[in-house]
Design a protein around this nucleic acid. Structure first.
Length: 422
DNA sequence: AAAAAAG
């Protein structure tokens, strides 16, 4: 039997009511967490009971603390080897989770360690030899340690897959399964993401025992505080449009998402002529450069970050006011994650998506997923020059937006010609 | 097809 809980009827007003100890409540006070967010209120109690939990909640609503707090609470001091392993899809996300976990575990005898590629392995070997209670890692390096025999999962009881749909997709699943085979049964499994399609939930259930399923974003998967707009534009004028948009909007901090690493490099180079504060990040950069850029972006010295999807998920930088999809994301789920880099913890944000004449279908797929149409914006001087300009299907009101979950698979894929290229 | 993740 799978237990489904849509949302808690009366969200607890305080962390104390969720069954957290005084030590944890004190740590929460020092980091200024006052009231639990909806996902925290719903997730923490069943997790503390030791149940398996699948948690879906919007971007920027506190999923990291939702799984970290129960792990901290259930931690048993004095045991050898890691008791919990948290897996995430990128090194930067692993580093961020480590930081948050450490802040929340303050005052406890609990060692957290990031285990990821791009960092010299010797340092990780020394940490592991000294003893680690909670491992936060990317799959590749975790497997590396398992092969070397430098890390054992024999004592692990809690497994967390953050960005679970990503971790279970075809690129990662073999690695994840390989790691899970090393975790003794029984164990507790916690899965979290802003996007968990029914298909992924079904798949995930294979790894879990009577999971409690939470969905706190059923009807409205994207964050209300994010203003979402799209701009139809010819591919060869995107750069001009971006410069114009930056002048117009004067973002506090923004991420410009590109489809490819090379594309991100090129755009950053061109942009840097006018904006010296531009930096780029993608998976081809050495980890030292990635770290340097993330530090600069977090401390505000880099106002504009040109990036691939390496920072599309999970990354939490409060001052991001704008997200620009310079290239429309191929996968609608990635759209939701990308725009979720802004509008975090109740702040507002703006997301612009550039849409080329041939990209009506990906745009519609996004709208179907988020169950909402994007506002069309035309920037003066950037009107599309071709004949037949217009969004025919929208004016006819033919975009089917499903009210039931809004997932692509459940809704027909309409063809939409955005504007004529004739 | 691209990006991410081991080196």
């Amino acid at each position: 039997m799978i237990q489904r809980i849509a949302s808690s009827p009366t969200p607890p007003a305080s962390f104390a009511e969720l069954g957290l100890s005084r030590l944890t409540l004190a740590a929460l006070k020092t980091v200024n967490y006052r009231v639990p967010s909806p996902i925290q209120a719903a997730f923490i109690p069943p997790a503390l009971e030791g149940r398996d939990v699948i948690g879906q909640a919007k971007t920027g609503t506190g999923k990291t603390a939702a799984f970290s707090l129960p792990l901290i609470e259930m931690h048993e001091p004095g045991q050898p080897g890691p008791q919990a392993i948290i897996l995430a899809p990128t090194r930067e996300l692993v580093q961020q989770i480590c930081g948050e976990f450490e802040r929340l575990a303050r005052g406890r005898d609990l060692v957290v360690r990031g285990i990821y590629g791009g960092e010299p392995i010797e340092r990780q070997l020394r940490s592991l030899a000294k003893g680690v209670d909670v491992v936060v890692g990317t799959p590749g390096r975790v497997i590396d340690h398992l092969q070397r025999g430098t890390m054992s999962l024999e004592g692990v009881y809690h497994v967390v897959l953050d960005e679970a749909d990503r971790m279970l997709d075809i690129g990662f699943r073999p690695d994840i399964e390989r790691i899970l085979r090393k975790v003794p049964q029984p164990h507790q499994t916690l899965l979290l993401s802003a996007t968990l399609s029914p298909e992924v939930r079904r798949l995930a259930a294979r790894y879990m025992h009577e999971p409690v399923e939470l969905n706190l974003s059923r009807d409205e998967p994207s964050v209300e505080k994010i203003v979402q707009k799209y701009i139809p534009v010819d591919h060869n004028r995107k750069m001009e449009l971006l410069l114009h948009l930056l002048e117009l909007e004067k973002p506090r901090q923004c991420i410009v998402f590109c489809r490819t690493k090379r594309g991100a490099d090129k755009l950053a180079q061109r942009l840097a002529r006018r904006y010296p504060g531009v930096a780029t990040i993608h998976g081809d950069l050495p980890q030292t450069a990635r770290n340097r850029v993330m530090r600069g972006f977090r401390d505000g010295s880099i106002p504009i970050l040109v990036a691939t999807d390496v920072v599309g998920r999970g990354i939490d930088v409060e001052e991001i006011s704008h997200v620009v999809n310079y290239d429309i994301p191929d996968d609608p789920e990635n759209y939701l994650h990308r725009i979720g880099r802004t509008g975090r913890m109740g702040k507002d944000g703006v997301a612009y998506t550039f849409v080329g004449p041939d990209e009506g279908i990906p745009l519609t797929n996004i709208e179907v997923l988020i169950n909402k149409t994007l506002e069309r914006v035309v920037i003066p001087g950037f009107e599309v020059t071709e004949r037949g300009v217009g969004v025919a299907d929208r004016s006819r009101g033919r975009i089917p937006i499903s009210l039931e979950g809004g997932y692509r698979a459940a809704a027909p894929k309409p063809f939409r010609q955005l504007f004529s290229t004739a």
